[in-house]
Structures are given as C-alpha cells and as structure tokens.
Amino acid sequence: MPVTPPKWIIALVGAIGLLWIVPLIGVALTSLQTPEAIARGWWNLGNADFTLDAWTRVWTEYPIAASLWSSVKLTAIATVLTMLTAPAAAYAFHYLRFPLRRGTLILVINAFVLPQQVVIIPLFQLWRDMGLIGNVAAVIVPYVGLSYAWAVFLVKSFLEDFPKELIEAARIDGCGPVGTFFRIVLPNLVSPISACAILQFLWCWNSLLLPMLFLREDVPLTVMLARIAGQYDPNVNMQSAAAIVTAFVPLCVFILFQKQFAAGNQVSGGGKE
C-alpha cells in the first residue's frame, strides 16, 4: 500500500542524499581544474578556470583506453562464467544426490568467510610455478572461484522456494537432469542470476588486489588508477578523471539493471500458495 511519507522525512532523506553527492561533485570539478586551482580548494569556483587538460593528459599519458578494455574483458568473462556455473552448481547441490554433496557444499560456501588476502600468497606461488603470472586466467580463476561462495549460496536459497513439482513434472515428462536444468530451471532463474551477475560485475570491476599482483601489462582500470595515484606529481585532477572513468561503467550497469536486482523472487507452478 503506497503511503505518502511526511514532508520532513523527504527533506531529511534529501539532505542526506545531497551530502552523499558532494564528494562526487568534488571529483567531477577536480578533474576539470588545474592543480593550482585545486590547491585552493575545488569549491572555490570564483577564480577557477576550467580545463579539459587533465582528461586529455590522462588519456594520452596513461593507457586508459587499454585498461578500460582490459577491465571490460576480465569482468565480462568472470561474470559470464559465474552466471553459467553458479546456477548449475546450485541446482546440482539442491536437486541431485551424489556422494560428498554436503561436504562439498559446506566447503564451497565456507569460502565466504575466507578473506581474499588469505588465498593470495599461496595462489601467487601456484601461478608462479605454473607460469600463469601475467595471464588473464590468473585473475579470472580466483574471480570466479571466490564468487561461488555467495553466488551458489544465493541461487541455492532461491531454489529452496522453487516449486519442487516443476522438477518432478519435468521428470514425468521424460526430461533428464541436465535438460531439466536448461529447460525448466534456468528460464525461471532470471532474477537471482541477474543479481549474481550485477554483484559479480561490480566486485570484479572494482577489484584491485588480485589484478595488481597477478597481472603485469594489460592491467584493468583500478590498477591503472592506483598507478596514476602513485606518481609524485601533483596530479589529483588526473586521478579524478581516471576515477570517473573507472566508476562510470559500474554506475551505468547498476542503474540499468537495478530492476532485476530488486525484482520479486517467486516462481510458481500455478497453484494457489
């Protein structure tokens, strides 16, 4: 039932929202000013002269375009892999009976509590021995692997409410377990899979530690941003420009797909519940 909230709540929420936006405005303005002007404070707009200098310099002096492509590539591959394999794993854990099912599930889900930092050193040694350092697989494998903890959990908890009769009806109709997954379960899993995809996309896109350690060239935007920030020049304006480029894509993704994210999670076999 939609209820109109009292005015003061709208005012309060508006004020807080504005507060949240201020840093964003700051970043945008910073990227458009000269370092001298920034030193006086980006909010001193009175005698600031705006320039696109930082944007062109960051684009020419650093391989931002290549990094953008690298980010897109890494994130897209990792996201698609998670979208395909996490639901399959959740389905197998939920509906199929196989030895060590429980043990494996607990193992996978427990990676939830395992901080990324813990796996990084052994993983580094492993990749080094396998000669994978610098290879995209060195990042994609842990991206996807670490996502299973929450992605499998998320899809599986959705499957808890998935009508069992649909699976049984498919069995009666002569559809095997793999066919049932692709023909019956997957088409009804759009909302949890989009949720997984969005989370995985944002997480991979913003991930810094793994690509920084495991990649040499072809680094994604986050690493590039860190490199720009690591310079000794006064280049806050270029950092801001790169930060905007970095943040722009996930922002678009989120705005575009927020509907799926919040969508209702009910599948029904048609009965009255």
Binding site: P163, E165, L166, E168, A169, A170, R171, I172, D173, G174, I184, P187, N188, V267, S268, G269, G270, G271
Partner: peptide, 19 residues
C-alpha cells in the same frame, strides 16, 4: 524411469511450467 513406466501425473498445484 517415470517415462519407461508409461505413466503421466497431474499434480495438486498443477505444476505448469511458468515460462
């Protein structure tokens, strides 16, 4: 398997494929 048994079943909640 259910198919090899030559049976068909109608469920209480209909269990129609929603998609």
């Amino acid at each position: 398997d259910p198919v090899a048994r030559g049976i068909a079943m109608v469920f209480q909640n209909y269990a129609l494929y929603p998609h």
